[in-house]
Design a protein around this nucleic acid. Structure first.
Lengths: 339, 339
DNA sequence: TTGTAAGCGTTATCAC
DNA sequence: GTGATAACGCTTACAA
């Protein structure tokens, strides 16, 4: 079997408890014995067993990640690798390990989280999305289990630790940008109906219109759900309106890519016939033709701070919920044009 | 504290060991007591503690994922979410949990794996990439720890369980395809130098050329590493050759996106001036203009089978290494054109 | 068919 | 400063 604390103790001629204290770098152990023990650990190739430690400790030094239930292709979204990169950078700094949980349905995901939590596999959880009426979030709240959310929770915003962009402002910013370019008929492509991010941006969109005395038109609102086939149907509806829009705000770059394809197929040209601005600034957005004007939401830091908040919560239980806003910035490229 | 096996035992008026047996669904326990115990578990909201179980069991019911060390933007590649979706689908079926490990460098990654392994956090590991001289792979072999690889290992191919496409064939297929469209001057954009996948495809490329009596030209080979700035320099070198290529084979769709952007910027048109075929068939590849002709490598199943193989290895230790080939298929869209 | 008790590798609480 | 010893929650011989 593998080498344990007892083997080390024997070799260093000390008690197991002493070895444990050396591992924890307990200041009450003399440097001399510390060195002796460390040599023994080294020469035996000792590695602490995390399970035993967790059991004795009631802490796991790991956090769990909850992905959206991946019924669909959402999962091919490069947003996730990037946000995970942020999380794991922070986790690594503090020597925390990362558990993942996915499921084909919300129910399956919930069960996964229940197992992680009750099974004592993790000390806390990060939810990588935020949607209305999320069961997992309610569950974690009920259990008073440490968690943080990427995006803004729908309810109890102030009681839940989360990190988000100022999406209302971001929505307003892009709309203002288009207005300032001379656009008055601006359409908006929502994300899925129950995404809070998307709702916030829409709020900003409305606000900008209002400030500019442009009336909000329901017919200018497209829903992502209706865009399965590349959205030809919805977009042609849009373009054949009496007064078709001159600009489009799109929920995220990924969706923009497909919409740009469709628009092209339909014989329209971006940005000549239609300006387009969206969100996320994926690496690829630089390489579309024309390159995408988009809001950089700093995905990496969304992840990094979510991990940071969670680790704080874990280390100082009973702490108040905290909210972090990660700054966004409009990256001007070529899909938005003066009218 | 949370409810343990003893609490359940007390309530059901049995011994803790009996409860344990009920959990394991031991056939030697009478249905009657099983039911009584199950009721008790239910009413107390019992969940088994995985750490305790692992400790007693010396098995963790979890597997670890090793990502490439994410120095760069590689991480925004949608390949990874998709492959993870495959893995986690299989893992879920067998009630295994998933651990992740990343690092900023190969050294950091290796340390992460060492901790996972020696710390007893996982029963096995999947390596999500395959590169020449990988230290992590050697480490796992030395330790005789169960692992599987996505992609083909560079050394000891037959001793290592892995799942891959037939990349030589895939490379040959796309080249044949272009040749059959009338192309004779076909350039090839390698992936990073130490990727085995890329080497295999290049082999297929060479083979196809040979079969068609076309001579292999070193000047037609581009290296991804040189393409940081979108590759303008390398591509203009290519296009200003005495006899510039009429077709381009590109390592993966992601890279194709950026190359298509560059080529467009330079005033050339795809596929009129240059045909382009690549690999991966990302969701997005359907939406580029023109839509990408590319090889679908079935990323999901690459992940799914890697997990399957690993779980087999874990359950039947000492089993022989196994190799799985996931079929690929050329998806003909519009970037490859008859000359 | 079920109970008893030892053990998995740690940490924590007392002693000294 | 360091050493015994009892947890932590579970599994698994071995008994009964």
């Amino acid at each position: 079997m593998s080498v344990t604390i007892k083997d080390v103790a024997k070799l260093a001629k000390v008690a197991p408890s002493t070895v444990s204290r050396v591992i924890a770098n307990n200041p009450r152990i003399s440097e001399k014995t510390k060195n002796r023990v460390r040599e023994a650990m080294e020469s035996l190739g000792y590695h602490p067993n995390y399970n035993a430690r967790s059991l004795a400790n009631r802490s796991t030094q790991s956090i769990g990640l909850v992905m959206p239930s991946s019924v669909d292709k959402v999962f091919q979204n490069p947003f996730f690798p990037e946000v995970i990169r942020g999380i794991s950078t922070k986790a690594h700094e503090e020597d925390f390990a990362i558990y993942m949980s996915t499921g084909q349905s919300e129910q399956e995901s919930l069960e996964g989280v229940e197992r992680m939590l009750h099974g004592g596999r993790v000390d806390g959880v990060i939810i990588l999305y935020s949607s209305i009426d999320d069961k997992i979030m309610s569950f974690l709240q009920e259990e008073k289990f440490p968690f943080s959310v990427i995006g803004k929770p729908y309810n109890n915003v102030n009681q839940i630790t989360h990190v988000d962009n100022d999406n209302v402002q971001a929505g307003k910013d892009v709309t203002d940008y288009l207005i300032q370019l001379g656009h008055k008929r601006i359409a908006y492509v929502c994300g899925s109906l129950d995404s809070v991010v998307s709702m916030d941006r829409k709020l900003g969109y409305k606000k900008a219109l209002q400030d500019a005395n442009i009336s909000y038109q329901e017919e200018y609102i497209l829903k992502e759900e209706l865009l399965n086939d590349g959205g030809i149907k919805e977009i042609s509806r849009l373009m054949s309106l009496q007064s078709p829009p001159t600009a489009l705000i799109v929920k995220d770059d990924l969706l923009s890519f497909s919409i740009m394809g469709t628009i092209d197929k339909m014989g329209y040209s971006i940005p000549k016939d239609l300006s387009l601005v969206s969100f996320n600034n994926l690496m690829l957005s630089e390489f579309t033709r024309p390159p995408l004007t988009t809001v950089d939401i700093d995905i990496f830091n969304l992840g990094y701070h979510a991990a940071d908040c969670l680790l704080n919560l874990i280390k100082n239980p009973g702490q108040e919920a905290k909210q972090v806003i990660v700054p966004h910035r409009l990256v001007e490229r070529q899909t938005g044009q003066r009218i």
